[in-house]
Simulated assay, not measured.
Amino acid sequence: MSRPVVAGVDGSPESLAAAEWAAREAVRRDVPLHLVHASDWSPTQAPSAAASMVRRHVGRGVLRKAEDRIARTCPEARLTDEQVDGPAAEALSHAAQQAELLVLGSRGLSGFTGFLVGSVAQAVVARATRPVVLVEAGERSEDEHLPDEDGNTSLLTPYRDVVLGIDVSDPCDEVIEFAFESARLRGATLHAVQAWDNASAVALGSGAPGIGEGPRREEEWRTFLTAVLQNWRDKYPGVEVTETVVKGRAATHLVRAASGAGLLVVGRRVRETHLGRHTGPVTHTVIHHARCPVAVVAHD
């Protein structure tokens, strides 16, 4: 049985844009779309029957609003919905476990929105083991496509690039595969971006990129990137791939590359620290500043 694309909705413009993006993605993947509204409450509370009824009524209205929008913009989506109780971050993280991917709304430069005024989406990204895609308010189907010859938005032009943030010193199959598959589904170019600096070369060891200086060092990184991606090129022969190797901070270059992209794909290592789960500095930066949908793919 196919995993659905799951979208968390709360009635905000951000979550409605996320639901619409999720509907298009579900159609592309030929899987169902499942809408989830999480009624946030503390397990220490004991809501009355009347309060529970009001919460269910409000939740039903939120789901209906999202369903109506999808019916107008993506009627071919196969749609189901669900209301879940409990802390929203926990409920949505649990829903993500059964999903092909989870889609949530994001305010972009202003931070995260919705379920708990900014905290929930970020918490879900940090704990979910399945891919999570963050979508800004105002995101439209036309925005996934290149502008036409007159510079206008259009559904008739090719899809914008899928940008992959990659670290060739520790490449992750889950992240790379998600990016290639996303590009394949769209017929889009995959743009792989590898940023390096003097410190990052040390981890690769003797005989690896970083033994040269200046242009030679950059060329070594480029050679290594090409080698890492070759197996994926063979697996996805229909996907055109471009590569960028650049010196500097990865987050800065990824945000810049995402400015003209249809989707940015980055990874998040699943690990516990003394501060709990977190997204990592590069992913944390791009999910706050990238101006296109961002897919965060968890990996070991």
Rank of each mutant, 00 (worst) to 15 (best):
T244R: 08
A192M: 08
E181I: 00
F224R: 15
T189H: 10
L254M: 06
E181A: 07
H253K: 13
H278C: 02
G260E: 06
P237H: 01
R217G: 01
A179D: 02
L164P: 09
K235S: 13
A250S: 14
E177N: 10
H284A: 10
V175P: 10
L225N: 05
V202T: 12
A195E: 05
R249Y: 10
N198M: 14
P171F: 03
I176R: 04
T283F: 03
W196K: 05
G262E: 00
Y159M: 01
G280T: 12
K247C: 14
S169T: 13
G248V: 01
G210W: 09
K235P: 04
G187D: 06
H284V: 02
G262R: 00
G260N: 03
Y236F: 15
I166W: 08
W196L: 02
V163D: 03
R249D: 15
Q194Y: 08
E213C: 05
A183M: 08
L229S: 01
G267E: 12
T189K: 10
S206T: 15
D161I: 08
V162K: 14
V266D: 12
V193H: 02
T283Y: 04
A227D: 15
S182A: 13
D167G: 04
T242D: 09
T223S: 15
V175C: 02
V282I: 07
W221N: 07
H284D: 11
P171G: 08
A258M: 05
T252D: 12
V245Y: 07
E220K: 09
V168R: 09
G214N: 06
V202H: 13
H284I: 01
